[in-house]
Design a protein around this nucleic acid. Structure first.
Length: 580
RNA sequence: GGGGGCGUAGCUCAGCUUGGUUAGAGCGUCGGCUUGUCACGCCGAAGGUCGCGGGUUCGAGUCCCGUCGCUCUCGCCA
């Protein structure tokens, strides 16, 4: 077997410089154009396509004539200039073609379940034949982008002095968070490993070990139901953690990574300048109705509750007196919208749990359902901002359900989202606790440090904020992070509020609480979702488009037939009985 | 677990509203013709358990009930 048995060049290498050179190429037959006594072949490899030509004078003619598309061949031939009237300017190799001398058939292809150029295929079919789906140009591009993004991330992190450490895939189940994927243990019958939902505890333990800056391109496993931006099975995070770091120092690292990666791979887009905007959680809810605001939308809610102090219409009165808010959403161009538009927005809001969605237009005079009810003072405030506004009256706790979706829906329907921007923002000052069925529960990560540390607990739990932050881009949550609680006493106290005894904490989080008793540096970090970053970079609506081998919505791999049953022998070895 | 949408040829879909002769199209496949195409062209052919089960009806792809599958979404996602 000679070293270059299959190929001397790649398809896209070939241009006018190679004319009259003998070359060997290998790849797939993407297209055949049969002219009877002459056949054109588009040969495709990972670099692209080059046209090859053969006619009946060649003894290999019949071999090629019979070959199906997507068969794999190696061919030898001479690079020749195309006749001037058949140059293909749409193809990089379009000035030349290969005059085939000899071909070797390396692998015959059956008729494909779908044609390579089809781009409207059902997802089920694509996943079943993912190896073919990935052969298409669009998917090849996404594979390459994913690889390049991860390479870029690694380079930036290494340059900043971070060290990659691999953490276990088989670990123990944790009572907090999503459902775990579990793996039975043969050596310990009746016991189970869990796949890590994130390397959270390990990275904090690494801090205690004296690692100063840790990162990992880490797989995370959560048994959750699917969403367009959430894949079942595994997803990847740029997991990172820093010792002796403040929130600002973590932000600086993440901002550098995001800014570099997004500018490098989408130079056509406008990207938020560093430092990214910081929005306190409470403000985000009142301004955007969401802790994942899409800042490409050029309008937001305004709290105008104060304008209703004296002259409050009946329908709002009980809300205002009960401590609720009146929010105004001024939108430029609103007065040009049809009645049908307002009706559909009203229905949309109600479907999401709103009591109602009033509006007032102030284009020429006042109109709309609220025009008669609202004071001139209010309409003047609207007029300062726009020609019309929606109004919501509700308690703060109800806002995320519908105020955010309404804002987004209005922007989408009126086509007011700037698609040429990546708008980043930090959401900071998350509440440490929230009420859940009458008791206090962690609203985010239980390992976050409460602001004020031990002194925080002098406040009402609902007033305690955590050093907890999210990074959001175009309405998509890219990462959650926190400055951690490294003090066992504060941790016991924090868990006590959420109803955990000291014994509970020792039992459930033994490794970490124990480690913190042996000298733990203050530390904090974050974990941007790599799949979501690539989704934004590749402009796909669905996260599965940028995952090479995703599971479907039922958590199945239709290509590999996973999950699958296992033999009785296998089950017995694991000490497992399947209940019928 | 709840709600919406979809399921007809290998693929993408039309036909269903208003039940009625032999269920169509494009792409793909197969055969024939074709020496300058590059979404090659022209002629022809094969290919269907209309997801599955039941019901209504003289008659069901079409209407009704059930069921399965896919997909979007709510719950869920410390």
């Amino acid at each position: 077997m000679s070293k270059k048995q299959y190929r001397s060049n790649y398809c896209m290498d070939l241009n006018s410089d190679y004319i009259d050179k003998e070359v060997k190429l290998a790849g797939w037959i993407r297209k055949k154009r049969d002219h009877g006594n002459m056949i054109f072949i588009d040969l495709k490899d990972h670099t692209g396509v080059v046209q090859c030509v053969i006619d009946t004078k060649n003894e290999n003619f019949e071999n090629i004539n019979q070959l199906s598309v997507e068969s794999v061949i190696s061919l030898e031939g001479k690079v020749i200039a195309r006749p001037s009237d058949s140059i293909n300017d749409g193809l990089e190799s379009g000035k030349v073609e290969i005059d085939i001398k000899k071909i070797t058939i390396l692998s015959k292809a059956q008729t494909l379940p779908f044609a390579m150029h089809q781009d409207d295929l059902g997802e089920e079919l694509r996943l079943k034949y993912r190896f073919l789906d990935l052969r298409r140009d669009e998917m090849q591009y996404r594979l390459k982008l994913r690889s390049d993004v991860i390479k870029e991330i690694r380079e930036i992190m290494e340059e900043k002095g971070f060290m990659e450490v691999h953490t276990p895939i088989l670990t123990s189940s944790s009572p907090e968070g999503a459902r775990d994927y579990v793996v039975p243990s043969r050596l310990n019958p009746g016991k189970f490993y869990a796949l890590p939902q994130a390397p959270q505890q390990f990275k904090q333990l690494l801090m205690v070990s004296g690692v100063s800056k840790y990162y990992q391109i880490a797989p995370c496993f959560r048994d959750e139901d699917t969403r367009a931006d959430r894949a079942p099975g595994a997803f990847y995070q740029l997991d990172m953690e820093m010792a002796f770091a403040t929130q600002e120092e973590v932000f600086e690292v993440i901002e550098d990574v995001m800014f570099s990666v997004f500018s490098k791979f989408r130079s056509d887009m406008e990207i938020s300048n560093k430092p990214f905007v910081k929005i306190p959680y409470k403000e985000a809810i009142l301004k955007y109705g969401s802790d994942k605001p899409d800042l490409r939308i050029p309008f937001h809610y305004h709290d105008i509750t104060h304008l209703f102090a004296e002259n409050c219409p009946k329908i709002f009165k009980s809300i205002v007196e009960g401590g609720g808010k009146i929010l105004m959403l001024p939108v430029k161009g609103l007065s040009n919208q049809t009645r049908k538009f307002f009706d559909s927005m009203q229905k949309f809001a109600q479907d999401h749990g709103a009591f109602g969605l009033g509006y007032m237009l102030v284009g020429e005079g006042k109109s709309g359902p609220l025009a008669k009810i609202l004071s001139d003072e209010v309409s003047n405030v609207v007029r300062e901002k726009a020609d019309g506004a929606f109004f919501i009256a509700d308690y703060e706790v109800n806002l995320p359900k519908y105020a955010g979706p309404v804002l987004k829906k209005v922007a989408e329907e009126m086509n007011l989202i700037n698609k040429d921007k990546y708008e980043f923002c930090w959401i900071i000052d998350y509440p440490m606790y929230e009420i859940n069925e009458g008791k206090w529960d962690f609203s985010h990560n239980p390992f976050s440090m409460p602001q004020g540390e031990m002194n925080a607990f002098e406040k009402d739990p609902g007033e305690i904020m955590a050093y907890q932050y999210d990074l959001v881009c175009n309405g998509i949550e890219l990462t959650s992070g926190a400055i951690r609680n490294h003090d066992p006493e504060i941790m016991y106290k924090a868990f006590e509020v959420a109803g955990y005894s000291k014994e509970d904490v020792d039992r459930e989080f033994g490794a970490m609480i124990n480690a913190f008793k042996y000298g733990a540096p203050p530390h904090g970090g974050s974990a941007p979702g790599i799949d979501r970053m690539i989704m934004l970079l590749a402009d796909t609506e669905n996260i599965r488009e940028i995952i090479p081998f995703p599971l479907n919505q039922q958590g199945q791999d239709l290509m590999m037939n996973a999950p699958c049953e296992i033999s009785n022998k296998h089950l017995k070895e694991l000490g497992i009985k399947i209940e019928e």
